[in-house]
Nucleic acid binder design. Structure first.
Lengths: 203, 203
DNA sequence: CCTGATCTTGACCGGATGGTCAAACCGCAA
DNA sequence: TTGCGGTTTGACCATCCGGTCAAGATCAGG
């Protein structure tokens, strides 16, 4: 059966169901820690049925990663070279933090993969990701050279945005454990990060 | 056999060998992804011999986590309430970054565990970690109230230090992929982070 | 209603994996 | 040499897990 693109209504629905269940399970246990039975149970399908829609566990995982990679990079793509520099960067930070808040599973899926050496993403990192980041680094450097923002290394600026925003999704249990139950991590993080990047970027 | 504390010279040596091999394997593959055979091979011992020194895979893992937790928190403990505030915080950032550079396996071991919900560390996080952080948060708040550093949320300040420094160890492949082979991530990070925190903390 | 294609599943398979055990091995003191 | 802790291991076991398969259920078009 050729699965690209899906033909029938039923195929579209079931593939979507499976990918959602797989996201839940993979993001919680990592590739190796997740089992087909868990994904099958989570999706409400039988294991053989799951393997009717995807040829193997690995293909499910890879499908998830490549599908979500696009979404994941969108906030950075939206950073407009013609906009106001500080505003654009702060907006990027805000969008990225919202993604951590609204899509923590996606964040953890990538975190799991990358912490373990990204065995199934190497090429995507070195091509798509590096390409986009290098592009935006040029923009950031131009802004710095024009005195619109402070002169900071563009790549490390981007790393700092990733690190600070994804931390709240990836290390959620730790954040919760340290802050206790009566606080709102994301609301506080938004204020904190706005302050941090405002101060960092002021020329 | 009672293993606490280890009796003979041979026991101390072998337990150490095993824990080092386990750190290598667990940090690379996570708990579920690591196998006893891998750890046995890595340590140069046979699998049954390994299980002569530790009763189960999980005990090896837990032993690693609790042993390393101490080391991991040391840099924060060293932050001196009586020192110069900005200097103390910058020194903490530097120590933490050095730990990422010199002990990336330890960093990834924790990252793996926490991303997956810290199933074997919950209590340690809520007691040891929260306790220490809350202590230091009091110190930071006092510094802020005294006008020695800018008024930022102490907990999120600590989170930001963790996020920014551990990022270079935990997401090493990504950093390498984006920066390319001809740069020195840690040297650059040290300069970038000094700038960042200097600006953030200036009263 | 009939028929062929699509979808679903219980039963099963082979290999991996955590863990056990009895036997062997080793260094050393009497 | 013998005896005795402490140490090491080959062989083995039960379970888990990714994946297969053949047969049955369901659905859409005529």
């Amino acid at each position: 059966m050729n699965m690209t693109p899906p033909r029938t209504r039923i195929q579209r629905k079931n593939r979507k169901t499976i990918l959602d269940a797989a996201l839940e399970v993979f993001s919680q246990h990592g590739f190796r820690g997740a089992t087909l039975d868990q994904i099958a149970t989570q999706s409400g399908l039988s294991k053989p049925n799951l393997l009717y829609y995807f040829p193997s566990k690995e293909v499910v995982h890879i499908t998830l990663l490549s599908t979500l990679m696009e979404t994941w990079l969108d906030p950075l793509r939206e950073m407009d070279p013609d906009g106001d520099p500080v505003e654009e960067i702060l907006a990027y930070v805000r969008r990225k933090l919202e993604m951590s808040r609204d899509f923590p599973r996606e964040s953890r899926l990538f975190a799991n993969e990358i912490v373990q050496g990204a065995p199934r993403m190497q090429t995507a990192l070195a091509t798509d990701l590096k390409g986009l980041v290098d592009d935006k680094a040029v923009v950031l450097r131009a802004w710095a050279d024009a005195g619109k923002i402070a002169a900071v290394d563009p790549h490390h600026l981007i790393f700092s945005i990733w690190a600070l925003t994804q931390h709240y999704a990836d290390f959620d249990v730790q954040v919760q454990a340290v802050l206790g139950p009566d606080r709102d991590p994301y609301a506080e993080a938004e204020a904190f990060l706005r302050t941090l990047f405002t101060k960092l970027l002021a020329p």
